[in-house]
Nucleic acid binder design. Structure first.
Lengths: 145, 145
DNA sequence: CTCCGGGATGTTATATTGTTGCGCCAAGGG
DNA sequence: CCCTTGGCGCAACAATATAACATCCCGGAG
């Protein structure tokens, strides 16, 4: 396990403990798999990675993802049906994601939007913001090609 | 058919003709169903509405939706797996959607984001922006309840 | 006119993604 | 001890989406 992964895992454990949430082995393992991946991971790929023998069933991974998402440790990427670990473990509300279509890397920026007002008095409770394109590395690689 | 629906349909026909696109009967019917709905519609609901006898198959509606989306006449709502007619038929790039979780109505604002730069030189080609919450009507109804 | 080619649609089957429902078990409070 | 509660295993299924191939129709080339 690389260092940043174990660091993030212990941070997650502390965060959960402080909120009275149980970071059980299954949940921790799912989070670890997401942290180790450079790119977003699909639920069924996590499932396959969880139990190579094929023993794990869908609800296992979906329940873990649901927990991790609600705990603010993981983001679901709506347009890809995929998941990525949240690197800013403070978990305050909505994130804005920049997803490179070349290398799959996800950059994350936080905006506090919840509670803000949209047009005509619309009251926002949750936002999905996903930008697709090329990260600077891939953009320059492409330009030079 | 209410007036705004027929107006939108003729606008769509003109728009397609000017671009050399074929707004065939199936495509037009799907667009009409979306225009008539107050809320986003799922692909399989469209399918059921298309041919009450159950004769239509999934590819029919998915192909129509693909065409309409690429023509800028329809938006896909990623977090709902649903579709809604685009009311600003000019179809310039990304839309920002405000989706009321009470009544289902979708408000639409346009931002031209494509080509803009994100953090660290990220080059955006397409954005998904969906805000969930309550429209002003539903927010005030709730407040008074 | 005939033939050909491309786009649109029909048809069948399958892949992918996500959920429901039930039961077991272990931890903790009375 | 008993009972509740939350987490997990398990089986089945529901919902969403695509692949692959056949057919039809129309418009242009010969």
């Amino acid at each position: 396990m690389t260092e940043h992964v174990s660091l993030a895992l212990s941070a997650a454990e502390r965060s959960c403990r402080s909120k009275g949430l149980a970071l059980t082995p299954v949940r921790k393992r799912v989070l670890q798999l997401l942290l180790e991946s450079q790119a977003p991971v699909k639920a069924y790929d996590l499932l396959a990675a969880l139990k190579p023998g094929g023993g794990a069933q869908p609800p296992t991974v979906y329940r873990a993802l649901d927990f991790l998402t609600r705990a603010g440790l993981v983001h679901r990427i709506e347009a890809l049906n995929a998941y990525t670990a949240c690197l800013h473990a403070d978990g305050h509300g909505s994130a804005e994601l920049y997803i490179c279509e070349d290398c799959g890397q996800v950059e994350e920026r936080h905006r506090k939007i919840s509670g803000e007002a949209g047009p005509g008095g619309f009251l926002i409770s949750r936002s999905v913001i996903e930008h697709y394109g090329r990260c600077s590395d891939c953009a320059s690689a492409q330009a030079s090609a």
